[in-house]
Amino acid sequence: MIWLVFFSFIAAGIALSLARAGLGPTTPDRVVGVDGTVTITIALMVLLASFFDRQIYLDVALVYAVLGFIGVLAVARYLERGV
């Protein structure tokens, strides 16, 4: 039952940030939407590791936590003509 509440919140967060990424009039809006989705997906992966009861699955969440910002950084540096 408690899992249903958790996953509902996560699903609402993913839906809202993906909606911002889809609607966003300018590209920075879309980038921020996708970045928010990345962050919520990290939380989803941690929750699912607890749900499946497999601690080693946390490594995948760690990869996203360490590398998730590089794509956003690349787009941001492009927008300020720094690449």
């Binding site: 990869v63 360490v66 590398l67 590089i70 950084l73 690349a74 540096r77 720094g82 690449v83």
Partner: peptide, 14 residues
């Protein structure tokens, strides 16, 4: 992951 680290240096340090 290691290649991403070098990519981060390229992006962060002009």
């Amino acid at each position: 992951v290691i290649a991403s680290a070098f990519l981060l240096l390229y992006l962060g340090i002009p």
